[in-house]
Simulated assay, not measured.
Amino acid sequence: MSTKLVLLDQLAACHHDKSWFMPLDEMLRNVTASQALWLNDEGQSIWGLVNHLTFWNETWLERFIEGEVGLDNNINNDETFIVNPSQVSEEDWQKSIERIGATFIRWIQAVRDSDDAKLGMTIPSYFNAPWWNVISNVCIHNAYHIGQIMMLRKKVRGEMI
């Protein structure tokens, strides 16, 4: 199996393919805005996690598409979880769901359209890591937070854990 197929499988598993864990699109289905805003004891919310995933997936996707990684050391990771209090309607929540979904679709298309040479190209400014490794780690990051979303969803919706 090629590296590209493995990455496509990982991206699909995170986004829409029920395999080893429930994918993000399934986790967000039928979650209301008020449920998405509910905070656990650690101050995490489904919406905040979706914003965080959107930020990092869009950031690395743009870097991959452009072929350049200008690392911004001024990024405050905590700020990637923030939900804008002036945009907390049901419509805004649906837009957040659509945005992360569209980002996954763009990732899948970008990997599908890439060749092995691009996937194997190293990123000098990022520990000389090859792109395939970075994309794989983005997927691991996604899976980690999808698990957190699953636990929050179960808690807020009163589902069995």
Rank of each mutant, 00 (worst) to 15 (best):
M1T: 12
L7F: 03
L7A: 06
Q10G: 00
L11R: 09
L11S: 05
A12H: 13
A12Q: 13
C14E: 02
D17R: 15
D17E: 13
P23R: 07
D25R: 10
D25S: 14
R29C: 08
Q35W: 02
A36K: 05
E42I: 02
W47R: 03
L49V: 09
V50M: 02
L53A: 04
F55I: 01
N57R: 13
E58Q: 08
G67Y: 10
E68R: 13
V69K: 03
I75T: 07
I75S: 01
D78T: 06
N84A: 08
V88N: 12
V88G: 14
E90T: 11
E90F: 00
D92P: 08
Q94G: 10
Q94W: 05
K95H: 12
E98Q: 13
E98V: 08
R99T: 15
T103M: 01
I105C: 05
A110D: 07
A110G: 07
V111K: 06
D113S: 10
D113K: 12
A117T: 12
L119E: 09
L119F: 10
S125C: 01
F127W: 08
N128H: 13
N128T: 04
P130F: 10
W132S: 12
N133G: 12
N133F: 15
N137Y: 12
C139D: 07
I140N: 15
G147H: 04
M150W: 11
L152N: 10
R153K: 15
K154I: 07
V156A: 11
